[in-house]
């Protein structure tokens, strides 16, 4: 077998040494640092992307918070408006009720005043009629016309006594 022929042992060993040393130097000084560099770069990039994603996430959280705040504000505003409308309505209703009450009271007062005047009128009429009747009856009884003033006075006193 040519493998066991010692003639070419030396050149093979020498060239193996040379080429393997060259390969080792090339790998350790050039190729492996290069690949390490690529890996480091990739790691940096991934870290950067992670950071960016983190920032974006934060931003999204902020936007969400702002949105929620806006919604809450709008809701509060709407609630305010509703409350205001309800208050307005209540106020108007109250005002109307008050006016209605006042009107009713006015009308009642007017009616009562009418009744009172009518009553006073009737009373006055009753007084006149009573005085007349009393005068006539006194004239008939006495035979002489009674003093009108005295009659009226008498009727008044009687009526006052009754009214009490």
């Amino acid at each position: 077998m040519p493998q066991f022929d010692p003639t070419y042992f030396a050149p093979q060993l020498v060239w193996l040494g040379i080429t393997f040393l060259a390969l080792y130097l090339l790998m350790s000084k050039l190729i492996l640092p290069r690949i390490n560099g690529i890996f480091a770069q990739r790691e940096d990039r991934i870290d950067g992307n992670l950071q960016r994603a983190e920032a974006l996430k934060e931003e999204a959280a902020q936007v969400l918070a702002a949105y929620q705040k806006a919604i809450a504000d709008a809701r509060a505003q709407a609630q305010g408006a509703l409350a205001k409308a309800a208050a307005d309505i209540a106020a108007e209703t109250a005002a109307r009720e008050a006016e209605f009450g006042r009107k009713m009271a006015d009308q009642t007062a007017a009616a009562e005043a009418g009744i009172r005047t009518a009553k006073a009128q009737a009373l006055a009429d009753v007084r006149g009629v009573a005085a007349e009747v009393a005068g006539m009856m006194a004239g008939k009884l006495v035979g002489a016309p009674a003093d009108a003033g005295a009659v009226v006075q008498a009727v008044d006193s009687v009526m006052k006594e009754r009214a009490r």
Binding site: Y8, A10, P11, Q12, V14, W15, T19, L23
Partner: peptide, 17 residues
Amino acid sequence: GLDVSFTNSALWMVLAV
């Protein structure tokens, strides 16, 4: 005194590297 002839073996070592 050392035989360092460039043989076909050496050629393929160099090619491999």
